[in-house]
Amino acid sequence: MLSESDLIAIRRHLHQIPELALQETETHQFLLETVKKMEQKFLEIRNSEELPTAMMVLVHGFDPQRTIGYRTDIDALPVEEQTGLPYSSKHPGVMHACGHDIHMTVALGVLSYFSEHQPKDNLLFFFQPAEESESGGKQSYELGLFHGRWRPDEFYGLHDNPDLPAGAIGCRMGTLFAGTTEVNIDLNGKGGHAAYPQDANDTVVAAAMLISQVQTVISRSIDPIQSGVITLGKIDGGTIRNVIAGHTRIEGTIRGLTQKMIETIDQRLKDICEGIGRSYNMDVHLELNQGGYWPVENNPQLTKRFISYMQSAPNVNFVETAPAMTGEDFGFLLAKFPGTMFWLGVDDDSQLHSATLTPKEEAIQQGVDAITGFLEYRMTE
């Protein structure tokens, strides 16, 4: 079984070889080699031709009543590391700035334990590529990776949190992470001379009205007790001051705590774009791209059981947390399988996606112990 020093060494190696979404070949190979060094008596390893950097490991239980899934993400971000650590990224411009090296290491620690202590139920460990982009969770589901004995009855996963004490477990009933949708709006009118507006169709003016109307969606179409965000962060129209713009593009993002809320916001945006198009006699094209970044909506029954265990476990520091408006593609899998996502505290002054993120490594063993204890408790029910 992997010791704490083994786990720290694994984490530091993973930290040095970060790779972007769907490019995690070196990471995949290291994970595969690490798992193959474990006791193989209860393990079955599966790779996928359709999603080559994904890896699944099934731990066969001695009296399985269910298959419990555990997911970890394996990709990194296009960030130039600035931590100054001796084990900093060896890949220029790429860094585990979201802590997925911590995620993978904890998963390996839990898997290592159950490779030597056969569980009652089947356990499915899913090492998932492309969380940060490319919707790896959605891809894995749509490619049919979860079928037959590889289909989990329930799914769990963690995300590290620099705002919580090292090793603390954070969770909540309801939504943990918001869902996200990319918004692209193209307004196509007619360009012309600034002195002859009657002969043109100004997309900048139409865009200004559209942006103003969008500001009313959250304040007038969403229950104020709930929460949603629309940010239009980029606008590009025109070429020079004395030419009326025939095309303007607006780019932004939607965040919502439930899929129903996101769909409501989507519909209001469609209505507004259609109305602006008619009012200004121009084509207004709206593109909404959510991919797999659905809200992480925790299953009520499973999450209540998870929180109850973590609150009562003698060596676990449990913290009830507020929902976060950041996105996570585990939300798509939780829309397909009941499950729970939770936080693992890593106590750092730097935030996620920061070039200086330096998680506390003592969180790793505490995370392994808490998750192992919960899974053993879950299998007694």
Rank of each mutant, 00 (worst) to 15 (best):
M1F: 14
H15Y: 11
Q16E: 10
E24S: 07
E26W: 00
H28V: 00
M38F: 15
F42W: 15
E44K: 11
E50G: 08
L51I: 14
L51W: 07
P64R: 07
Q65K: 15
I68F: 08
R71I: 13
E80M: 15
Y87F: 11
S89M: 09
M95I: 12
H96P: 02
H100G: 02
M104F: 05
A107Q: 01
L108Y: 00
L111K: 06
F114G: 11
S115A: 15
Q118P: 11
K120F: 02
D121F: 15
E134L: 00
G136Q: 09
G148R: 13
P152D: 15
E154R: 04
F155V: 09
L158C: 00
P165D: 08
A168D: 02
A168C: 03
I169Q: 01
I169Y: 01
C171I: 02
M173R: 01
G174V: 04
T175Q: 04
A178T: 11
T181N: 13
V183S: 06
K190N: 01
A194N: 09
Q198A: 08
A206Q: 14
A207Q: 02
A208V: 15
I211L: 14
S212R: 08
R220P: 05
D223G: 06
Q226M: 10
V229S: 05
I230S: 01
I230G: 00
G233V: 09
I235G: 00
G238P: 12
R241S: 14
A245N: 12
G246E: 08
I250A: 02
R255F: 02
T258Y: 07
T264M: 12
T264L: 13
K270P: 02
I276C: 11
G277D: 14
G277T: 13
Y280M: 15
M282R: 14
D283G: 13
V284R: 15
N289C: 13
W294F: 14
Q301M: 09
T303M: 03
S308Q: 09
P314C: 10
P323V: 03
P323K: 05
M325F: 11
G327L: 03
L334D: 08
A335W: 05
T356G: 08
P359L: 12
G367P: 06
V368Y: 04
A370I: 09
T372L: 13
T380P: 07
